[in-house]
Design a protein around this nucleic acid. Structure first.
Lengths: 204, 204
DNA sequence: AGAGTTATATACCGATCGGTATGGAAGGTG
DNA sequence: CACCTTCCATACCGATCGGTATATAACTCT
């Protein structure tokens, strides 16, 4: 076996654009318009490439969306993974709400949550997209439930609150935050929402 | 002035469909597909009429949507108005959450909330639709804020909670409920969410 | 029975949708 | 240099989008 650390001796004409940069541009379009609302014309214009280049590099519209969704979760939803490391259940909730708030207040990015938008968009063609996004949300939901199970075992949860129910409650708040951000709420309004949510968070 | 209690001596050929019935069918389509996801082809098929009949009776797609939105608020969101009559702030919250839950569990209707769906759908053409829906939500938001202002004056609210913030918190929960319902949550999961929300509702 | 009016049915409109065929330009390797 | 591979640019594909022109059918009024 030969070492292939410089694996690709590129044979043909090199491409004239940066794939990662183009994908980031595509993400911004999907993020602000939804899967169906994003047309190939707007995507190519915003990515600065032509349609054949897009199809050669990414496959088709659905594949492009899935790659953009990967990028979104990797870069914009990183706080969800690190939040689980907080020492207490309340700490987890604080990190999640503050992370979601910070993301919505990021000035360069579109408002709202790509996941929420994609689960709400409902055209016939987008059903497989929707199912895909729902499945991903279910996995992060499961991780958070596991974290709250541990909290319950540690006596960290008030009595009578099931981890599953608490996760759904917390997700509902974050989804509501995204909906209101997408509807044009101001930063201070979103801050108010997060503060209120944390002020009523159940303590034992 | 003549009495016009039988106001319309219909002159031409009578229409062969019931306008209210067709509008109800259109509402179901918009509700499950969103404004942009609902095509005229699916609308006319589901309404059981042809395109010229639709345009003659309702104007165009946007006007049809607005009339469907009227119907939605009148029939499906009636609980929001009556909830304000509850004697306490907590009672208002209970009626709102239970009303939203009951609506999401109605077996014949699509899942999710037409308002949330329409605020999330993002194509270029739908921006005026989105603005319209946002404006309507703002008015019901204002009504609820006024109700909680009264509650505050009556000493019905815990100290340190602003009516505005509490309304946004409550709306976030209801929007989250709709998102999860649209994503395929089961009835018992939604019930869990409502119970949890009410169990952490702040009391003085 | 006509005339006037309104609704329906079919076929059609330009524009846009996602996706692709084709021809040439830009690189490597003989 | 020819040769091969890959990418870019233009033009194009059938399908569908929202919306409409035209012709005919069904009704009331004179």
């Amino acid at each position: 076996m030969e070492q292939d650390l410089a694996p690709a001796p590129p044979k043909g004409r090199p491409r004239e654009f940066c794939v990662d940069q183009a994908l980031a541009a595509a993400l911004r379009v999907f993020w602000s318009r939804g899967y169906e609302g994003a047309s190939m014309a707007e995507l190519t214009a915003e990515m600065g490439i032509t349609k054949p280049s897009l199809y050669a590099a990414f496959g088709n519209k659905e594949a492009l969306f899935n790659k953009a969704l990967d990028l979104y979760e990797r870069e914009k939803l990183a706080y969800m993974a690190t939040a689980l490391d907080a020492p207490t259940a309340r700490g987890v909730a604080e990190r999640l709400m503050h992370g979601a708030l910070e993301m919505q207040m990021s000035p360069g990015d579109p408002k709202g949550c790509l996941g929420v938008i994609s689960m709400s968009a409902c055209g016939l063609e987008a059903e497989s997209i929707k199912a895909h996004v729902v499945a991903r949300r279910a996995s992060s939901e499961a991780a958070l439930i596991a974290r709250f199970e541990r909290a319950k075992a540690e006596g960290d949860l008030p009595d009578g609150l099931e981890p599953e129910a608490l996760v759904r409650y917390l997700f509902a708040l974050m989804q509501g935050l995204s909906v209101q951000a997408g509807a044009g709420a101001t930063c201070s309004q979103l801050q108010q929402l997060v503060e209120t949510s944390l002020s009523v968070w159940p303590t034992r």
